[in-house]
Design a protein around this nucleic acid. Structure first.
Ligand SMILES: [Zn+2]
Length: 494
DNA sequence: AGCCTTTGACCAGCG
DNA sequence: TCGCTGGTCAAAGGC
């Protein structure tokens, strides 16, 4: 039925594509990890797309493939899977390209059970897994009945960072799963599921982001820069930053995270750059700390002088993939001569529970709603969020092959890690059931559930989308003695 | 033995 | 009715 040629990729990665064809969120189920592991370990050759087929990725459900067809109009064969759980009628269709990238997923039905592995916890966004293919291609996760047919942009690769800004952490992409509308009437939390569905989305990290606390002339525009990030703005009081997040349904499914550290000796400043994977020119740069040294004059000071954001050279020097529909260049994105370097590997030092501020951007976001993201005051001595890094990333991110570095703040819930860096966040399943500890699986490094702390958005407190343990301390109480903390929203120039 | 994938055949819907 | 298409079945084989 299916030409053998079309099946070749699937056969090559059958352990992954068949058992867990699209399960980017977890750990291996049954001990057939050889293929994926091999892929992960062997992709120095640039086989980056294969990372998406990590055997380690799993959504916690068991699927049995019951058919494969080459459908008309589709370049790649479509595989049909059923949930193997007794009486569970959930099916999904997966289309994979020849190199193993998932190009489309269609879910049908709702599970009437939890994941096969109780320990595997999935955030509402991740409950129905997102294809974990990469390569910047576009895939889609769809609900069978047409309730949600949302194209998502899959991960981007090859983000290079200019020498002035060395990636402090591993580049990661986050994925947002589109929870499909259920058609299973037995699924009592239909409403809840649907609610998740409606709100499932990652904030579009582009022009919809605006900084509330920025009153400068550009504060409300795309790429607005929060004051107080560094020495450029000494008078501002960046004890806490709030960002409103306007959400869009055309959300990027992934976010690329990069971490940098100022290379000046003893300078604690770090920055954290978020990019929407499908719009790499849209960046959110979060600064932590104050430079202890003179900040060199910027090459382009048209905007920074008033906003005090040390806009990273990385955001402007990164050779960006061509992406359609990118926002026009923003002049405030500029180069700085401040040097940043990757953080050293800190190992378990960073694997501590953190109780940082609120990241309320994710749990249940409705399109176009405004969210307040309250950023915690970062303290140099604070424990680091256990946002594990996959050391193996260095195999696929040539520009980011630094030692693993962990961010200094919690990661918003919908941001999972793509490729081999899969992170499963706590939350509820698509039946509205609260699920337990967060699990983060990052290229073989699993973090304990307690290593992550999230806070569900204020608006969604009662929706039980997050496990209680996701609560974090009220950072307002701890914001008094914080160094500068700034979040910069930017857009990369063409 | 059990579960899985593979794959040709079969079925249903549709024009 | 027929052909096309997408979806499913089920036998065969593998692990
Ligand atoms: Zn199921």
């Amino acid at each position: 039925m299916i030409p053998s040629a079309s099946c070749a990729p699937l056969q090559s990665y059958h352990a992954d594509s068949a058992v867990n064809p699209i399960t980017p969120l977890g750990e291996p189920t049954s001990g057939d990890d050889g293929v994926a592991q091999h892929l992960l370990e062997g992709n120095q050759k640039g086989a980056f797309p294969l990372m998406g087929i990590s055997k380690n990725a799993e959504d916690g459900y068991n699927w049995r493939k019951y058919g494969q067809k080459h459908v008309k109009g589709s370049e790649f064969p479509r595989s049909y899977y059923k949930c193997t759980y007794p009486d569970c009628l959930v099916k999904k269709k997966v289309e994979r390209s020849h190199d193993g990238q998932i190009t489309e997923i269609v879910y049908k039905g709702a599970h009437n059970h939890h994941t096969s592995r109780p320990s595997l916890l999935v955030s509402p966004f991740l409950q129905n897994e997102v294809p974990d293919s990469v390569d910047g291609g576009s895939s889609s996760v769809k609900a069978e009945d047409g309730a949600v047919w949302r194209s998502i942009q899959l991960g981007c690769k090859d983000i290079k960072v200019d020498a002035d800004w060395r990636v402090d952490g591993l580049e990661r992409t986050s994925s947002t799963s589109v929870v499909t509308k259920t058609s299973d009437p037995l699924s009592n939390p239909q409403e809840k599921t649907k609610g998740v569905l409606e709100s499932a989305g990652t904030p579009e990290l582009s022009s919809t982001l605006a900084s509330h606390d920025c009153d400068d002339e550009d504060g409300a525009t795309q790429g607005s820069i929060c004051p107080g990030g560094d020495a450029d703005d000494e008078e501002s009081e960046p004890k806490r930053r709030s960002l409103s997040l306007s959400l869009s349904l055309s959300v990027p499914a992934r976010t690329i995270w990069s971490y940098y550290k100022c290379t000046s000796a003893g300078c604690p400043v770090r920055k954290h750059v978020e990019r929407a994977a499908n719009n790499l020119k849209s960046v959110i740069t979060t600064y932590e700390g104050k430079h202890i040294h003179e900040v060199p004059a910027t090459k382009n000071s048209s905007q920074v002088n008033s906003t005090a954001g040390n806009l990273p050279a990385a955001t402007s020097n990164i050779p960006l993939p061509k992406i359609a529909n990118v926002p026009k260049p923003e002049p405030h994105v500029q180069d700085h001569t401040i040097h940043f370097e990757r953080k050293p590997a800190l190992g378990n030092e960073y694997m501590k529970p953190c109780l940082l501020g609120k990241f309320g951007s994710d749990a249940k976001l409705r399109p176009s709603s405004i969210y307040q993201m309250q950023f915690p005051p970062l303290q140099n001595s604070m424990p680091y969020a256990s946002f594990g890094m996959n050391i193996n990333h260095n195999e696929t991110h040539p520009a980011c092959y630094m030692a693993p570095v962990l961010p200094d703040f919690p990661i918003p819930v919908p941001m999972s890690i793509h490729g081999s860096s899969n992170m499963v966040l706590g939350g509820s399943d698509n039946h509205g059931n609260s699920i337990g500890p967060i699990r983060s699986f990052l290229g073989g490094q699993q973090l304990r559930g307690t290593d992550l702390r999230f806070v569900k958005p204020e608006l969604e407190q009662e929706n039980n989308l997050y496990d209680n343990r996701l609560h974090i301390s009220d950072h307002e109480n701890a914001s008094s003695s914080s160094p500068m903390f700034c979040r910069v929203v930017g857009s990369l120039p063409n």
